[in-house]
Design a protein around this nucleic acid. Structure first.
Length: 756
RNA sequence: GCCCGGGUGGCGGAACAGGUAGACGCAAGGGACUUAAAAUCCCUCGGGUUCGCGCCCGUGCCGGUUCGAGUCCGGCCCCGGGCACCA
């Protein structure tokens, strides 16, 4: 088993601290690491510190840079100019996954849309595989995480169809659109193109509408992503002055520029069917465009003038020439077959997922290993010159963009190919790139002939048990899956997926809100450790809620955990210090009193339950049963020496069962109990199967499904004996009142239900 | 709108595989110990009813299947999360 730890050490917080307080990001980062490390050690986590890594170390990011150059060579890393998400506060570009409701995931600022050059990873190369594997991960991943990823990938099937233009524009003789509803093609009454689409400006060139349309484009493209979303209700557009032709009807179709068309999705141009698409409907109403129904619900006639909204459900095709009368679902197929035969379009699958923009206009990150040469163009840095180290001698002003771009000695370099003057790329990589492969590095953290030792990765990976927060359901978990597949295809490993089982643990909540400095509801672990000790903190956190759920921090709750450990401590040090260690010898069951025997049974049932629960990560219930055992053990009054031994056995069991949860206290009590050496060297306890199976059982007797009596019986009781005992019971007889039972159900060793 | 979760005491949460609902803990109330307090220990703690034994009701709501439903099925309501002008 490998239980490693490391630090995602790059990122804007360190740089922001440098700007605000004049501390170098590196100093700030390593200070924080030292503090965190001390805290983790105090808490007694069993990390393998020999494998510790920090992603800001050049010996780490060097390999990431090398992989970048390989990806570049394969076209999986590429540069393009496009509309990107810009966070004005972080002063950097964000990937689509890092924008939440139009706001920056990190700082919450309103994200602006900007056209910029940047580097991208071609996640879309793996879209279908990423989607397909969500089905294979089903056994180990929470349903909702997979659902989120599927959602994010957003597969939709349909067709691309070419609509010829009346006259050629900018070298284009037609407009290609994507639709999921080819069955509605006879109802097209206009088309729309995204304002950002390069062809939009071409379509209006020289037209009377040009001036008006240009103004519109300018206004819309200036809006932030938040405005574009928020104004969702209001559909706006302008006529381009250009017409296309419906290839099915030959009809003349006006082309609009419309604010609701997304340039990045599909082809950035759509056919508009107001009768069967709500958005198209609203736009048509606004601009007085015709509405032509071509799908009708079975047995109903649709009339454009009566419609108050689009009819989006399936139905029967009408007004569609030879396709009329077909159900819309099979109509889709027929239309697609038709366009493929006539070569005016083709079947097409579209995804929402877009390529991962990894350029960050920030200093504290791994430099992108690229050099720009006037002669040779874009040149990747050769392996022998890696890593491209982040220069530490930098001035942080917080103004005017990335400090890297102003570091002359960094920027100016020579071209690795021609030796001439060249300039370095000054963008750094998104920190999610580092976190996309650190788990592989753990397999061979000190390997210096490559990113990782393939043999070691083959041995340790995939991760059997990956634990992280739900907030990375899409971000980190999608990127890591993608990156792993890239590494596989570069021949570096044989993994299809990095994480077999995923456990999304909850956050610690205080007063109904996520703990944060700005809200001021922070509970400092150091304070808690000082007051109660690490074990109390551990115990409480594991006990208060199942790991998957958020944990409500409660000052009273932690007191309860503290009380429990103290009770155990007192039981051992005050009441039973003089009894000799059992050293594995179990008391003689025959010499025990009834309560002694009950306790012995309880001890072994507890061992079984804790073992099972830990296996299932159900720490809260595991702790609860140990608490029960402590209650029972404290209450017993031993009837003889053999009973005392049971108490001793119970105490020893509790200490050992609690070891993974409260290691410090357990070790201490273990030696208090007279044992030498550490519990870490002791094997896990096993329960006595005979004792657990042979224990007396409670049989419930129901009359007409209602519980009327509880009988204590032997574990090997037969159905017949259960029945007899049930009918013999006085209380039960009272309920039967002499009536003949109509039926008797017996659940072996559990229940007798008498129906009268 | 679509897709996932989830609704159990005052609270956090238990309940294998349809078989005693509320384990364990917190809070609350009462009592013991103490000059007093803290700590500790004991009792009560879903609702109604009863002097009590007990009885009736109760797992968001309505219905169904079953000898028996928190658990299964159908319909609805509410809460949380994800996606969303995705053509």
């Amino acid at each position: 088993m490998l239980h490693p730890i490391g630090w995602a050490a790059f990122g804007p917080p360190a740089e922001n601290a440098a700007i605000a307080r004049g501390v170098h990001p590196a100093v700030w980062t390593y200070d924080n690491i030292a503090q965190m490390k001390a805290q983790l050690r105090q808490l007694g986590f069993s990390y393998d510190w020999t494998r510790e890594i920090a992603t800001c170390d050049p010996s780490y990011y060097k390999w990431e840079q090398m992989v970048f150059t390989r990806m570049f060579e394969k076209g999986l890393a590429y540069r393009k100019s496009t509309t990107v998400n810009w966070c004005p506060s972080c002063e950097t570009v964000l990937a689509n996954e890092q924008v939440e409701d139009g706001l920056c995931w990190r700082c919450g600022s309103v994200v602006e849309l900007k056209v910029m050059d940047g580097w991208f990873f071609k996640t879309t190369e793996y879209t279908e595989e990423l989607l397909e594997y969500t089905n294979k991960l089903k056994d180990g991943w929470p349903e909702r995480v997979l659902a989120m990823q599927k959602n994010w990938i957003g597969k939709s099937t349909g067709a691309e169809i070419d609509f010829p233009l009346e006259e050629t524009v900018g070298g284009e003789s037609g407009l290609r659109i994507f639709t999921t509803r080819p069955d509605t093609v006879f109802g097209v009454t206009y088309m729309s193109i995204a304002p950002e689409h390069p062809l939009a400006a071409q379509l209006i060139k020289g037209k009377p509408e040009e001036k008006e349309a240009l103004k519109f484009i300018k206004r819309i493209t200036k809006q932030s992503s938040l405005e574009r979303i928020a104004e969702g209700a209001k559909k706006e557009g302008v006529f381009t002055g250009t017409f296309a032709v419906n290839p099915f009807t030959g009809g003349r179709i006006p082309v609009y520029i419309a604010n609701f068309v997304l340039v990045e999705y599909g082809t950035g141009i759509i056919m508009c069917v107001p009768a069967h698409d709500q958005r198209d409907f609203e736009f048509a109403k606004e601009y007085g465009l015709p509405i032509v129904p071509v799908i009708e619900p079975e047995g109903t006639k649709l009339r454009a003038e009566d419609m108050t909204g689009a009819y989006e459900e399936p139905g029967v095709m009408v007004n569609s020439e030879q396709f009329s009368g077909l159900p819309s679902e099979s109509g889709k197929e027929k239309i697609i077959e038709y366009i493929e035969k006539k070569k005016i379009g083709k079947r097409r699958v579209n995804y929402r997922l877009r390529d991962w923009g990894i350029s960050r206009q920030r200093y504290w990150g791994a430099p992108i290993p690229i050099v720009y040469c006037d002669t040779c163009g874009v040149v990747p840095v050769p392996d022998k010159d890696l890593p491209v180290e982040l220069p530490l001698d930098i001035e942080f002003t917080g103004k005017g963009g990335s400090p890297l771009a102003k570091a002359e000695s960094f920027v100016n370099t020579v071209c690795p190919e021609c030796g001439g003057k060249a300039k370095r790329e000054t963008d750094t990589m998104d920190t999610f790139v580092e976190s996309s492969w650190y788990f592989l590095r753990y397999a061979s953290p000190h390997f210096n002939e490559g990113m990782f030792d393939k043999k070691e990765v083959g041995y340790w990976l995939p991760v059997d048990r990956y634990i992280g927060g739900i907030e990375h359901a899409i971000l980190h978990l999608l990127y890591a899956r993608f990156y792993t597949k890239v590494l596989r295809d570069l021949g570096m490993c044989d993994l299809d997926e990095p994480f077999t089982n995923l456990l999304t643990q909850g956050m610690v909540i205080k007063d109904g809100a996520k703990m944060s400095k700005s809200v001021g509801n922070i509970v400092d672990p150091d304070d808690m450790i000082k007051k109660y000790g690490a074990d109390t903190v551990r115990l409480f956190m594991l006990f208060a809620a199942p790991v998957q759920k958020d944990l409500d921090w409660s000052d009273e709750g932690i007191e309860g955990a503290f009380r429990f450990l103290n009770r155990l401590w007192r039981l051992i040090s005050d009441r039973f210090p003089k009894i000799e260690p059992l050293k594995g010898k179990t008391p003689d069951a025959d010499k025990l009193s009834v309560s002694g025997k009950d306790l012995l049974t309880k001890v072994h049932k507890t061992i079984k339950k804790v073992t099972d629960d830990l296996e299932k990560f159900q720490f809260n219930t595991a702790i609860a049963v140990v608490m029960e055992l402590l209650n029972d053990t404290s209450r017993i009054i031993p009837a003889g020496d053999e009973d005392v031994k049971v108490v001793r056995e119970s105490v020893e069991a509790m200490v050992r069962l609690l070891y993974p949860i409260a290691p410090h206290v357990s070790e201490e009590l273990w030696s208090e109990l007279g044992y030498k050496g550490s519990l870490v060297d002791e094997p896990w306890l096993e329960w006595n199967k005979g004792l657990v199976a042979g224990a007396a059982i409670t049989v419930v007797v129901q009359v007409n499904g209602k519980v009327r009596a509880q009988l204590t019986m032997d574990a090997d009781v037969s159905d017949e004996e259960m029945k007899e005992a049930a009918f013999a019971d006085e209380k039960v007889r009272g309920y039967l009142a002499g009536k003949e039972p109509r039926k008797v159900f017996v659940v072996p060793k559990k229940i007798v239900n008498i129906v009268v």
